[in-house]
């Protein structure tokens, strides 16, 4: 599943970039984050408590930073699982300067499995939208930017391109 999200934060992109690579900021901003610990310089482990559709659960996983290109872009390789399913894939983050503010585009290509796919896949887009909004609201607060830019956030969860091809 490909999930693309965009957000705007009223701060220079250098600030945004360093905030997105600051584990203290991430610990504070990631919705449902219960624990975020260092594994090594590029990898951190995270424990989350989240609800997707009717399925509430705890998830544990790792994020490994790749292709670091400050202050423009980086990618997280994600691998997480819980009792109700798993998520694995990549999230590519690109930050552009837009006047006084920064525009953040995130393109996630993830595989979702287990009960959260069977029951929640239809709602993943909406869940991602809410989580993104929450995340960037916190991020703006963390770096002292004006808070509410959520209405500029866009999200588009695309269905799997291969999913329906037999039927078309």
């Amino acid at each position: 599943m490909k999930i693309t999200t965009s957000a705007a934060v009223a701060a220079p992109r250098e600030h945004v970039f360093s905030a997105l690579n600051d584990r203290g900021v991430l610990r504070r901003c990631i919705p449902g984050c219960e624990e975020l610990t260092d594994v090594d310089e590029e990898t951190f482990a995270v424990k989350l408590k989240l609800g997707v559709a009717g399925i509430k659960g705890k998830y544990a996983g790792t994020a490994t930073r790749q292709d670091l290109l400050p202050p423009e872009s980086f990618t997280f390789a994600l691998d997480g699982k819980g009792k109700t399913g798993f998520v694995r894939g990549t999230a590519a983050v690109r930050i552009e300067t837009q006047g006084e503010a920064s525009r953040i585009d995130c393109e996630a290509d993830v595989q979702i499995g287990g009960a959260i796919a069977a029951v929640g896949s239809r709602l993943i887009g909406a869940v991602a939208r809410k989580l993104t909004r929450d995340f960037f609201r916190e991020l703006a607060d963390a770096i002292g930017a004006p808070p509410d830019v959520s209405d500029q956030n866009e999200i588009d969860a695309l269905p799997d391109p291969g999913r329906d091809e037999r039927l078309e």
Binding site: Q111, A118, V119
Partner: peptide, 16 residues
Amino acid sequence: TVYDENGQLLTGEFMD
């Protein structure tokens, strides 16, 4: 009944 390209069942209850 729909499976995605990774073999995940997407129609696991009556909402889907």
